[in-house]
């Protein structure tokens, strides 16, 4: 079963490589699993997802990320994508003049061997079946990618791309506190439809609310660039009830305990 392994990962902004944001993060995700990473703002959740996807603004200063046992750190962002990694963006870019259908077609074409041409009929058939599955109106894909989209439409566009590109691992950056309930539902329904043996999901969120719709197999709490607590879905409920301060206090306690034993 394929895995996505994050090993003792340190990430910084490329402009300030000596100031790590992610500080020694370890996590292994298998296909079939849904992991949720939660944590207060500014703990490096979005940085983690962008660095794994290969965003040029970030630099991995140490550690490794392995996809199916192979390090992806030397791969360009597009190679990582073609290897099966998908990032659902918190703020997806607009691509004026390029329709969703044409954009996805180019993305599918990019996955074919050189010289191989996409079968247009088969492509549209598959696109429409995915749209039916996700209850997306046919007219949607003739619009330019994300141009003038509402928050919900952007999410729908991301989910449709994920459905079409069928990644092995999907990193879903849903940290935006402004996410409205419709957008949350779109993301949740999409993930629930695609959930299964062939897909591993890393769901990054600030709010427990999203987890009302997507029940994760594992929940991790991220704080100050690290995962400080892991558990099952009940951890999310505990966090909701007690707040992040509870985690901070526990951390402080264990730190002083460590000092005491030393």
């Amino acid at each position: 079963m394929p895995t996505l392994e994050i090993r003792d990962l340190f990430v910084a902004l490329a402009a300030t490589p000596d100031k790590p944001i992610v500080k020694g993060l370890n996590l292994t995700i298998r296909t079939g699993e849904v992991h949720a990473i939660m944590g207060p703002n500014g703990t490096g959740k979005s940085t983690l997802s962008k660095a794994i996807a290969g965003h040029p603004d970030y630099v991995i200063t140490s550690g490794d990320v392995l996809l199916g046992g192979k390090s992806i750190l030397e791969m360009e962002a597009d190679e990582r994508a073609r290897a099966g990694l998908f990032l659902a963006f918190q703020y997806p870019s607009e691509i004026p003049g390029v329709s969703i259908a044409n954009f996805l077609r180019a993305a599918v074409q990019a996955r074919l061997a050189e010289g191989e041409e996409i079968d247009a009929t088969a492509y549209y058939k598959r696109l429409y079946s995915k749209m039916d599955l996700l209850k997306i109106d046919r007219k949607f894909t003739s619009r330019s990618v994300n141009e003038g989209f509402s928050g919900g439409e952007k999410k729908r566009c991301e989910i449709l791309q994920m459905a079409m590109l069928e990644p092995t691992f999907s990193l879903m950056d849903e940290t935006d506190s402004g996410l409205d309930i419709d957008a949350l539902r779109i993301v949740a329904e999409g993930v629930n439809l695609m959930r299964g043996e062939k897909l591993g999901v890393l769901l990054i969120t600030h709010y427990q609310r999203l987890l009302d719709y997507i029940v994760p197999d594992f929940v991790h709490v991220m704080y100050d660039g690290r995962i400080v607590k892991s558990g099952d879905k009940t951890l999310a409920l505990e966090l909701e009830a007690k707040g992040y301060d509870w985690v901070k206090q526990e951390l402080a306690l264990s730190a002083s305990a460590a000092v005491a034993t030393a």
Partner: peptide
């Protein structure tokens, strides 16, 4: 914008 497209597999 370029990174977004690269993330979808385009060079």
């Amino acid at each position: 914008m370029i990174f977004y497209m690269q993330q979808r597999g385009l060079t």
